[in-house]
Design a protein around this nucleic acid. Structure first.
Lengths: 249, 249
DNA sequence: GAGTTTTGATGTCTGCACACATCGGTGTCA
DNA sequence: TGACACCGATGTGTGCAGACATCAAAACTC
């Protein structure tokens, strides 16, 4: 009944509540151990109890909060968060922990892509292998021409095809994060106009190795790409503090 | 033992609703594209709207369903599910796709652990390195003595320490899945009473390499463990169909 | 200190109003 | 007559408000 004139012009109240709370928690604005009351959130966000409850349920499933009767909604420490959830990753990228998140993603990618290349050489469907080779050639050309936007587009496509071609749905799921990483790297001007000549050839090597089913060569070439990428980026985040998640026994 | 503290515990209606729907969707009982109505779920599960709505919100955040006005709650295809969510993994392990899920996890682990070993050699805190060596020695002893339960316990601890010691929270988050994999392998009688002699030594090699900060040696030894594990298990799931997630453009 | 009662927050239920995508009927125009 | 654009009816999720149930922390009693 109340003035809901300004209601869902943009997104649903539910999403806005999740976004608001998720951002505040991941940014550290709401520190671990802090207790919030549902009623207090209703007042703050000017929404009804159902909206708050549904949002809290989602955050609970992400490991960001826990609810206890007679206590309230308690913020959980980062070690309890699901670090693979796309929303959590997005919130972390928008927080002070951006550098640490980028490093984590890069390390994961460096571990996974060579494995994906190895698997793709054995399992990828034939059309995908052909497309991979085409894209690698196009990348090389775009790189030589200094066509940065097109290179980025092809780069994303290349690595997406690689992950998809592995036939492992967990690897494939990383496509989105990889795309975001590559885009971010380009947008922030960390990419030269003309990519490293050897790196371009390594992409071709990966594609051709996969095309002919040479798992070991595909893996090695992919590993070279990843090691170069890591060494390029390592300078920027050396001072990022590492977080060691304790072993739960 | 994993996964369930059911029975005697009176789990909340909310959790039961999530469990019921999640299981049905992941098992394929509710196929992709199928539309359910919230009211229908209230009747089926004999719970109120609020419980259903909160459960659906959670499933929505996992990518299992989407809601559309005037249509209902639509089940999404597996390519939309979040393959890293612990609940989704658990539901898949309890479904016909168990074999495929185990393979995916094993492939992910095979990719990540050597990378984690490499990172741990450079970053792990000193006490963790020492503990890792102790555990590796204890593993070797338990292996020689044929003490299967103790070996399993130490095996889990070893790999958890390794992942934790990497200082990458995404790697560390895989501890739970690894523990479940190792436990499942033992429970299902896939482990011999006396583990492979060389594998025992490789664990020691990993630990000692990390202890002395030799990243390359740590990685290589870990890689040997993983490759042996993969080749051991590959027989059991060769006929599991692979799912290729399409590249979204 | 152990056991009991009180208290206060989440958990669950229900009725209502609203937003809005879809469907089907109606009217117009070729 | 047939094709097509329009528009209102319909159904379903979304959001709101208030009540009662439940249960664990905290206070209290012995």
């Amino acid at each position: 009944m109340a003035a809901t004139r300004l209601s869902s012009m943009t997104t649903s109240l539910h999403h806005r509540a999740i976004e608001n709370l998720g951002t505040r928690i991941v940014s550290g604005n709401l520190p671990a151990g802090h207790v919030i009351l549902a009623e207090q959130l209703e007042d703050e966000l000017k929404v009804s109890r159902s909206v708050i409850r549904e949002a809290v349920r989602v955050l609970q499933s992400l490991g960001l909060v826990e609810t206890t009767k007679r206590v309230g909604i308690r913020v959980l420490p980062p070690s309890r968060w699901n670090p693979f959830d796309p929303q959590v990753i997005r919130w972390r990228l928008a927080s002070d922990a951006r550098g640490a998140q980028l490093r984590s993603l890069a390390e994961l990618r460096a571990a996974v892509e060579p494995a994906a290349a190895e698997l793709a050489a054995g399992n990828a469907p034939a059309p995908l292998r052909l497309e991979l080779v085409d894209v690698a050639y196009a990348m090389r050309e775009a790189g030589h021409n200094g066509d940065v936007p097109r290179f980025l587009e092809l780069d994303i496509q290349f690595h997406s095809l690689l992950l998809s071609g592995s036939g492992n749905e967990m690897f494939a799921n990383l496509m989105g994060q990889v795309a975001e990483t590559l885009t971010g790297r380009t947008v922030h001007g960390l990419m030269p106009d003309h990519p490293h000549e050897a790196a371009l050839q390594w992409h071709v090597d990966v594609a051709e190795a996969i095309a002919r089913g040479d798992a070991e060569a595909a893996r090695d070439a992919s590993d070279r790409i990843m090691r170069r990428t890591m060494s390029q980026m390592s300078d920027t985040w050396t001072e990022q503090p590492r977080v060691f998640i304790p072993v739960r026994r």
